[in-house]
Structure formats: C-alpha cells, structure tokens
Amino acid sequence: MGEWFRWMLVILGLLAVAAALVVVLRLRALERRVGSFSCAVAPAHAPAPSAPPRVGIAHYGVGRLDWYRRWSLSLRADRTWSRSELEVDSRELVPGSQDRYRVRCSYRGEPLVLEMSFPAYAGLTSWLESAPPSDGGVVS
C-alpha cells in the first residue's frame, strides 16, 4: 500500500503545481492585454451590506466589456456587458479608500456595481461616450 500511495501523492502534487502555473499564466496574460484594468464586481443587492466584491480584470472588447475573475482556471469571461446597454448612473469613493470608486451602473435595467480606480473609471466613461451614435452607452 505504501508505494502506490507515494506515487498518488506525487501525481496530486504535480497536478496542483500545474494548476497553479496555469492560473498565474492566465492572470499575467489578462493583465498585460491592452484595454485591461482591475475591476471588482460588487453585489448590487447583497444579503449583507458587508459582502465583499468579487475581484477581477475587465477588458474592453469590440462593443462589449468582458470581466474575468482574478483567480480562476477559466479562459472565458465570467461576465460580458454590451456597450450599448451599459449605463453609468453614479460614482462614489469606496469607504476607507483614497483612489477606488464604487461605480453604480445599470445593465438591461438591472443594477450593477463595479469598483475600480479613478483612471479606470475615466477610461470606462470615455469608452462609453465615444461609442458610435447608434450604439452608445450612457453616462449620467
């Protein structure tokens, strides 16, 4: 029983190292893409007011904003918002922060709360305002 058990531990260890390597490489690739920025998605109707936001990376696509969870093995975006249906309603400083904003949005009539730095917020609003006239998002 001892020999095969040691081999199973070695195999499980190698699989864990491989998974960690894939996560780190995925994260580096997402962070280095042009048009990517750190962005957390906060629960709009959190059961508890202190529910933490899900940390991730947003990336501007053609006519859409893709959001990827920071720590994941998935190569697909976790959420995608169409540029024409995304509206920025307001922004406020995240409590206890000097440079992070809580941006209240609506997407297809549903509330959406994003947390990002001021430069990322400026980029988001510029991206929405620069949409073609028939496809523009709204910044209130």
Rank of each mutant, 00 (worst) to 15 (best):
S140L: 12
Y107N: 01
S130D: 14
L75G: 13
L128G: 04
R104W: 11
A16C: 13
R26S: 10
V41S: 03
G35E: 05
G96H: 08
D78K: 15
V138C: 07
W71G: 07
V34R: 15
S106T: 14
A48K: 12
V139Y: 11
T80H: 10
E87V: 13
M8V: 13
S130M: 02
D99E: 12
V103P: 06
R108V: 10
S36Y: 06
R32H: 04
S36G: 12
L114Q: 10
Y101R: 11
S126K: 07
V24I: 08
L15Q: 10
G13T: 00
R69M: 07
R32G: 07
V62P: 09
W71L: 12
W71A: 11
R104I: 09
E87H: 14
E31Y: 08
L9Q: 13
F5G: 07
L73I: 03
R6I: 07
G2K: 00
G61Y: 03
W127G: 00
R6Q: 14
D135Q: 14
A44I: 01
H59I: 01
R70S: 11
L114F: 12
A19Y: 07
A20Q: 13
L15T: 01
M8K: 15
L112V: 07
A19M: 08
H59W: 09
R64D: 15
A20L: 12
L27V: 05
S74Y: 11
L75Y: 14
A48G: 02
S117F: 08
V23G: 00
R91I: 09
Y60S: 05
A77G: 03
L75T: 09
L21E: 00
G56E: 06
L15H: 04
D89T: 00
Y107K: 01
A18S: 06
W67N: 03
V113W: 05
A46H: 03
Q98D: 15
P95C: 06
E92D: 15
G56D: 06
R6P: 00
R69P: 13
L27H: 05
L30S: 12
G123Q: 04
G136K: 10
W81Q: 10
V10D: 02
E110H: 15
V103K: 00
R70A: 08
S106D: 01
W7I: 04
E87T: 12
E31H: 06
S38P: 03
R83W: 15
R69S: 11
R91E: 13
R79E: 04
G61M: 02
P132M: 05
S140I: 00
A29V: 02
S82W: 14
R26I: 05
A77Q: 03
A58H: 07
S126W: 11
L15P: 05
R102F: 06
I11Q: 03
E3L: 03
R70V: 02
G35F: 09
M8T: 10
